[in-house]
Amino acid sequence: MARKVLDEPSEEIVANAKKARETKRGPFARMSLFVKQVIAELKKVVTPTRKELLSYTGVVLVFVVIMMALVSLLDWVFALTVTYVFGTPGG
């Protein structure tokens, strides 16, 4: 199972953000800070195991099939209703 990681920025990121807020940085310094923060956030990402990935994929596929069935059923009911109210086409 994936390990739990708190979604809080580290003290280093907070300190850098406060320092950046206090001083006006040039465009390259801002881009550099952005890249550093992106890398720091990417280090927090936890990839799922193969078993978890297959489980998540299965859940999504089952949900999509159920939603397709629901939408198809509603489409069929509305088509019957419209045919009943307005009659058959061309007739």
Rank of each mutant, 00 (worst) to 15 (best):
V59F: 06
E11V: 05
V77L: 11
A40N: 02
V59N: 10
Y84V: 08
E52F: 01
L70H: 08
Y84K: 13
L80A: 10
T47W: 09
Q37M: 07
L42H: 13
F34N: 14
V65Q: 08
V77N: 12
R50I: 05
S72P: 03
L73A: 09
I39F: 10
S32V: 09
S32W: 15
F78D: 08
N16W: 00
M68R: 07
V38M: 11
F63P: 02
E8S: 14
A29F: 04
V82Q: 07
A17K: 03
T81H: 14
L70M: 11
A69D: 04
F63H: 10
A15F: 01
T57I: 07
V14H: 02
K51Y: 11
P27G: 04
M31V: 07
P9S: 06
G58M: 00
A79C: 06
L73F: 12
F63V: 08
K24E: 10
A17N: 05
L54Y: 10
D75R: 11
S32A: 12
G58H: 05
E22P: 00
V14F: 02
R21T: 06
S55Y: 14
L6V: 15
G87Q: 02
Y56G: 09
V62S: 06
F78S: 06
R21M: 10
V82M: 13
A15K: 04
V59A: 15
V64Y: 04
L74C: 08
V14P: 00
V45T: 06
V46L: 02
S10Q: 03
Y56H: 10
R25E: 01
F63A: 13
T81L: 14
A20S: 06
V82I: 14
L73R: 11
T81A: 15
A69R: 04
I13K: 00
A29N: 11
V46N: 08
M31R: 12
Y84H: 14
V59P: 01
L80P: 04
V59W: 06
L61H: 06
A69G: 12
L33K: 02
A15T: 02
L61W: 05
V77W: 08
A69K: 08
T49K: 03
L61P: 00
K19M: 04
E52G: 01
K51P: 01
K36H: 06
V60C: 04
G90Y: 05
